[in-house]
Write a protein that binds this DNA or RNA. Structure first.
Length: 853
RNA sequence: GCCCGAGUGGCGGAAUGGUAGACGCAGGGGAUUCAAAAUCCCCCGCCUUCACGGGCGUGUGAGUUCGAGUCUCACCUCGGGCACCA
């Protein structure tokens, strides 16, 4: 009998918070505002323990900030467009809209019992026409400001299903359903001009001082600013020169070929005339369009028969090759190869028997390049054996500068700054996304839809029946009535754009929409000014680049169009990237030795190993992996809440691992969390009995204030696991405390407050049991009394040559020379010195003493 | 392939360059109980020693430092991202 009945306690306090509208955010100029946001979920069907962890972290911050006197905005919504809804409709019938909204309902029902302090009144899904209509309106604004444009771009094409494939749907270069070899196809698509913001997005990273360094570094590398030389190679046959871009112009004397991308205009021109070139180009472009696929593919080359002149030695002719590892999207789509100082070029030259010419060698270890290219850091000084501007010893950096200056002076090349960042292609040839609000008219061309006609809503039916998703391809493309419309400009019959937007568009401004979710414009400036920026954003590291960079771009574009104040162009003040929840995988083998996976609840763990509960068969345990349905290593939060209550789930996901790292869900860990919470309840019940347990109040108060300090620091620094360890420690102290009833009551009430961000229901219950006023959720956060945090004496370890040999306990402010004297009198030190004198004596006040012999 | 991380007892982890292993789990011992559950108390890195103690120890190898889990370099393993997964 614990008396700790979560099935009664938790709904009771959830009702109390709802009644008091504790978490409904209203503008209040009198308080500092605080906007905390967790990356919103995709409505996959059911909530996942990973969601519990993510939202619990945000909730800890939200409740803590509320208690410290902030006006808190903590909203929740759904990132609801995307492929899984269409896949579900394809696989098992039904409609993406019904599937999505059904999932949202289920997930909201599952999230509410967790007791998150969320403002549910602001909830929306990105597939709500009210949301995506505003997104369409912004698209038209962007179009007007020149932030969106159309150009040709390459997509993965499945020649059997006759559809465009997402990268995820290309497996080993083949379509995931048809198994057909994927081809490339060029389509005219819409792009956001994010590349115009390359420099600004890069420079502003420095100001993101509350972002993890690793995320900033990844974004910097992604934008990829480089300085290099652009110049032409003249063709021996007099054709159009080939423009190349290189970041290592200093190695020009080591050039042995010129390479062009299979997508380069010259490669395409040659392919038209030569079936062999066409065959090569098509072979070289098989197998998916990801950078990874291109980089990992076998390096293939085709000699075009064209030769170009070396810019410094017109009689030196270099062959032009088409090579599959050259990206048309970066630089000019053409390079010169310098095999001595680039491993990829070297592999290519060895394969096709092209010359290898060194331009510099190591200063300490000069040797000829064999199978390993010599690629020192750009800052390392090297010995130049082949440089046109007369360098002898210089670093790569210096040589690049010298080369660019030389080329500009002679007029055959110019230094240019280049970025790796490409424009953001937003067109998707799919149904379940935000329709791009333009119309194609034979007479007027591409015409924006009128704003009064927004939203351009997705059609639900087709010919009076729900759309049939079993037919491959984009249903909008073949929709009989939706597609046909009138031109907003001339009024003649026209056709709607049938592409929808990338779902990254939806998630690039939802944080701004939360500040005024029902506004009839994308945002409301007053609300945006009040609530923005997001003070604390929390989400997975997998979004370190794309989502966060796109959102940074969008905030700037929205500012340009008058939808956000200038102060909000960096929308996320602080970022925290949390780890995943993992779980062991349980596997048995079938008769063909193929793996068969089992749910954790079907497995019994014994000391000797794991067995299937039903059959007793031995189970192989694969330690800790990301939870996935196919591996069945999932834990359903609903079952955990049913068994232990929400507070146990919340406590456990925070307790065992640092938040930025993965945490492994274990049944034993959840059990332990529940036991602890039951214990706190029991201690509270005991104290509520009213008896004194002794008179040692000072010791308890000192421990309490130390805990207030440590837990507060832990929450402020995202050290939730450490904060929880401190709470365990204090609970042990309180349980044993020989103190008065008054001191113990104060201690348990403060303990409840400190636990409230993590276990809000238990905290309210304890608070109420002790006769606390109002809700813990609204009670001001306790303050540590500084005078109780310092000890009068301190124990100093004594090291001899860095190894701990002894310790002395001294007064906190004993002078250094006194400490030295005491240290030298220590038995262990005397023994080590054996009568001699120490070489050095290091005393770090309050820390350590080190005797060097 | 390229970019970015992480690696500490049987396990999850703690540790402003200053006593490595806080706190929790598992394990061992004890109390309570007719018995069990629950609860409470104690022990718990490895090797060595009757004991006191000593040696080793933070993925591997080097380095900086009076002192390194922490800083630097190289390597190994695992994880995230690579622009149409969200």
């Amino acid at each position: 009998m614990t008396g700790y009945d979560t099935k009664i306690i938790e709904p009771k306090w959830q009702a109390a918070w709802a009644e008091a509208a504790t978490f409904e955010a209203m503008r209040d100029e009198a308080k500092p505002k605080y906007y905390v946001l967790e990356m919103f979920p995709y409505p996959s069907g059911r909530i996942h323990i990973g969601h519990v962890r993510n939202y619990t972290m945000g909730d800890v911050i939200a409740r803590y900030k509320l208690a410290t006197g902030h006006n808190v905005l903590h909203p929740m919504g759904f990132d609801a467009f995307g492929m899984p809804a269409e896949n579900a409709a394809m696989a098992s019938g039904g409609h993406p809209k019904d599937w999505t909204y059904g999932n949202i309902d289920t997930m909201v029902d599952q999230m509410k019992p967790l007791g998150f302090g969320l403002d549910w009144s602001r909830m929306f899904a990105t597939c709500d026409p009210e949301y995506y209509g505003q997104q369409q309106s912004m698209f038209l604004d962007f179009l007007e400001k020149g932030l969106v444009y159309r150009k040709e771009a390459i997509v993965n094409w499945d020649p059997v299903d006759m559809t465009v494939l997402a990268n995820e749907q290309v497996i080993d270069g083949k379509g995931w359903r048809s198994g057909a070899e994927v081809e490339r196809r060029e389509l005219t698509q819409w792009f956001f001009k994010i590349s115009d913001f390359s420099e600004e997005l890069l420079e502003a990273i420095d100001g993101l001082d509350q972002w993890p360094a690793k995320v900033k570094l990844m974004q910097q590398n992604w934008i990829g600013k480089s300085r290099g030389l652009e110049f032409d190679f003249d063709r021996v046959d007099g054709g159009d020169p080939i423009k190349v871009y290189t970041t290592r112009p200093d190695t020009l004397m080591g050039a042995s070929f010129v390479g062009i991308s299979p997508d380069h205009p010259l490669a395409k021109e040659l392919a038209e005339k030569s079936p062999a070139v066409a065959a090569f180009n098509s072979a070289a472009t098989k197998g998916g369009t990801t950078e990874e696929a291109l980089e990992k593919a076998e390096k293939l080359g085709y000699y075009t028969g064209i030769e170009v002149r070396h810019p410094l030695h017109p009689d030196w002719h270099l062959p032009v090759w088409i090579a599959n590892f050259i990206l048309m999207d970066y630089g000019t789509g053409a390079i010169f190869g310098c095999p001595a100082h680039d491993q990829r070029d070297l592999d290519f030259c060895r394969k096709y028997e092209l010359p290898v010419i060194e331009t510099f060698q190591s200063l300490d270890d000069p040797k000829m390049v064999d199978d390993v290219a010599f690629v020192p850091p750009k800052t390392e000084k090297v010995s130049w054996i082949n440089h046109f501007a007369g360098l002898t010893v210089a670093s790569g950096e210096e040589a690049v500068d010298a080369t660019i200056a030389f080329a500009e002076e002679q007029g055959w090349g110019k230094g240019v700054v280049n970025y790796r960042l490409r424009d953001w292609g937003l067109s998707r040839q799919r149904y379940w996304g935000c329709p791009i609000p333009v119309v194609h008219c034979d007479a007027c061309g591409v015409v924006p839809e009128k704003k009064e006609n927004l939203p351009v809503e997705l059609p639900y039916d087709e010919d009076g029946k729900p759309i049939d998703f079993s037919v491959p391809g984009n249903p909008l493309d073949r929709h009989p009535s939706w597609r046909d419309c009138v031109c907003p400009s001339c009024g003649k019959p026209a056709k709607r754009e049938t592409d929808t937007m990338d779902t990254f568009v939806d998630s690039s401004w939802y944080f701004a929409r939360f500040t005024a979710p029902r506004a009839t414009t994308p945002t409301n400036m007053d609300d945006a000014k009040y609530w923005m920026n997001v003070d604390q954003y929390i989400g997975g590291i997998e979004h370190a680049i794309l989502h966060l960079l796109y959102s940074r771009f969008f905030a700037r574009a929205m500012h340009i169009c008058g939808h956000l104040p200038e102060s909000a162009i960096e929308p996320f003040d602080a970022l925290f990237t949390q780890g995943m929840v993992t779980h062991a995988i349980y596997v048995t083998r079938d008769e063909n030795d193929r793996p068969v996976y089992h749910f954790p609840e079907d497995v019994e763990i014994h000391e000797s190993g794991a067995r299937l509960g039903a059959t007793g068969e031995d189970v192989e345990v694969v330690p800790s992996a990301k939870m996935s349905k196919s591996k069945k290593n999932v834990v359903d939060p609903v079952a955990i809440i049913d068994q232990y209550g929400a507070d146990t789930a919340r406590w456990f996901v925070l307790s065992d691992s640092p938040p930025e790292r993965d945490v492994e869900w274990t049944a034993a860990g959840a059990e332990a969390a529940f036991k602890h919470l039951s214990r706190v309840y029991r201690i509270s019940t005991d104290i509520a009995g009213g008896a004194d347990a002794g008179s040692e109040d000072d010791a308890l108060r000192q421990a309490l204030h130390r805990t207030i300090h440590d837990v507060t620091m832990g929450i402020e620094s995202f050290g939730f696991n450490v904060a929880i360890a401190k709470l365990y420690g204090f609970t042990n102290v309180l349980a044993k405390a020989k103190a008065s009833h008054a001191a113990r009551r104060e201690a348990v009430m403060t303990l409840a407050q400190l636990m409230a961000p993590m276990t809000p229901h238990l905290a309210e219950e304890v608070w109420a049991m002790q006769g606390g006023e109002g809700l813990v959720a609204n009670a001001p956060w306790p303050k540590a009394d500084e005078s109780l945090l310092v000890d009068d004496t301190v124990t100093l370890p004594i090291q001899v040559n860095g190894k701990r040999r002894s310790e002395i306990t001294v007064s906190k402010d004993l002078p250094k020379d006194e400490v030295e004297k005491l240290a030298l009198e220590d038995e262990a030190v005397k023994k080590a010195l054996a009568g001699g004198q120490p070489k050095k004596l290091i005393v770090v006040p309050g820390r350590i003493v080190n005797v060097v012999i």
